[in-house]
Amino acid sequence: MLTLDDIRGLPKVLLHDHLDGGLRPGTVLDLAAECGHQLPDGPDGKPIGDASTLGEWFRDAADSGSLVRYLETFAHTVAVTQTTGALTRVARECVEDLAADGVVYAEVRYAPEQHLEQGLTLHEVVAAVQEGFDAGVAAVSAAGGLIVVRQLLTAMRHQARSQEIAELAVAWRDRGVAGFDIAGAEAGNPPTRHLDAFEYLQRENAHFTIHAGEAFGLPSIWEALQWCGADRLGHGVRIVDDITVDESGEARLGRLAAYVRDTRVPLEMCPTSNVQTGAAASIAEHPLGELTKLRFRVTVNTDNRLMGGTTLSEEFFALVLAFGYDLDDLRWFTVNAMKSAFLPFDERLALINDVIKPAYRR
Rank of each mutant, 00 (worst) to 15 (best):
L319R: 01
F58Q: 06
S66V: 02
L146T: 06
F323E: 02
P11A: 02
L153M: 06
D262Y: 11
A171K: 12
L225V: 09
T209N: 11
F316H: 14
N274Q: 06
D101A: 07
E72G: 10
R255S: 15
V126Q: 06
P112G: 08
E72N: 09
F333Y: 11
R193K: 13
I239E: 02
A127D: 15
R261C: 05
G188F: 05
V265E: 09
E56T: 13
G188K: 05
R69A: 14
L312D: 10
D174L: 02
D242C: 04
P358F: 09
R264H: 15
T81A: 14
L349M: 13
L267E: 11
D60V: 12
R331D: 06
L195K: 11
E285T: 05
A257F: 07
L153V: 04
A160I: 10
V170C: 11
C35N: 12
V320F: 03
A62P: 03
L15Q: 02
T73K: 06
D181Q: 09
D41G: 13
V240E: 12
D174Q: 13
D329E: 11
H16F: 01
K12C: 11
P11R: 07
A171F: 09
R161E: 14
L294W: 08
V300K: 08
A32G: 07
Q202A: 15
A251E: 07
D30K: 14
S141F: 00
L201H: 10
G22Q: 07
A86Y: 01
V13A: 08
A281E: 14
E290I: 14
R203K: 15
P191N: 03
N274G: 01
D303E: 10
T84N: 11
L321M: 12
G176L: 09
Q38H: 11
V320M: 07
A111W: 08
R361P: 04
V125A: 02
R150V: 04
A251F: 04
G22F: 03
N189P: 07
I243P: 04
Y360A: 00
V245N: 01
Q276M: 10
A183P: 08
K46W: 05
L294M: 10
L327P: 06
V13H: 04
L122D: 04
E117P: 00
Y200I: 02
M269A: 09
